[in-house]
Amino acid sequence: MTARALSVVLPLLMAPLAFAVIHRVKARFAGRQGKPLMQIYRDIRKCLGKGATLSRTTTWLFRAGPTINLAATLAALSFVPLGGLPAAVSFPGDIFVFAYLLAMGRFFTIMAALDTGSSFEGMGASREAVYSCLAEPMLFLALLALARHSGDLSLSGMLAAVSAGSWLTGAPVLALVTVALFLILLAENCRVPFDDPTTHLELTMIHEVMVLDHGGPDFAFIEYAQTLKLWIFAAVATSLLLPAASGSLVWDALWGLAGVFAAAAAVGVTESVMARLRLTRVPPLLAAAGAFAALALILVGG
């Protein structure tokens, strides 16, 4: 029971910290000190204390977008195990609920962006829709390969089936799925090379341009949901790479946390060493992720 609670409470408390690790790694690469690790918590608190300015063209959809997105992300989080800790909720077939909860959150973010009536936000929404259309089948291919590998249709079960021993027998499959999941992590969380989260030019933004008109508590929700989403994908990808089964609650939790922060650091390094891809080069990269996942599926099947 404690373990199930921990796998939800820890992300709720520490997801922004994992986000801050990315910033810190990037800052160090650029030779800067970087902002304090706790700054993101202060930003969220500051936004929560503010009022929101709403445009007269917007409707209830605009207000509902960030809230539904946060709620959907929280619900998806409850299916994700952390290292050796089991997920709060788990049943056969929950990968579909998991994937479509995330898709629903994104759908409402897109709707809220379109609701502003701004052409910039519409452009961002269109790009986000295209990329998520491409990323979703790749995510399913990767999860299907895992399901075939473990013979389990629940996210918790298929990740728990991976142990250090399964790396000895099925290393190619697991390595391919891990790489595919890491690419999907970058795409879903709008990180370089798919999207640049720090860009200030609306023409090149994808995710950031969709949330330009949100302010105050709405923006705090968006930021928080974004950190949770990063946590979700990082936890899934690293529980493949660093399987834990020590049996001790504390060690499992620490191992899981170490995995997530290592993934955040890896994202930071990726962002530091490469530039954002041209928009037309993004679909081939996602196709490469799909090729990795499909190859894993071929190797594991039959």
Partner: peptide
């Protein structure tokens, strides 16, 4: 590692190289 997983480990880079050849 047994023979089958070794063969898998060899097959993966070969297939990936095929796809990369077609894409480069």
């Amino acid at each position: 590692m047994d023979m089958i997983s070794l063969a898998h480990a060899a097959v993966v880079p070969v297939i990936l190289a095929n796809l990369a050849l077609l894409a480069s």
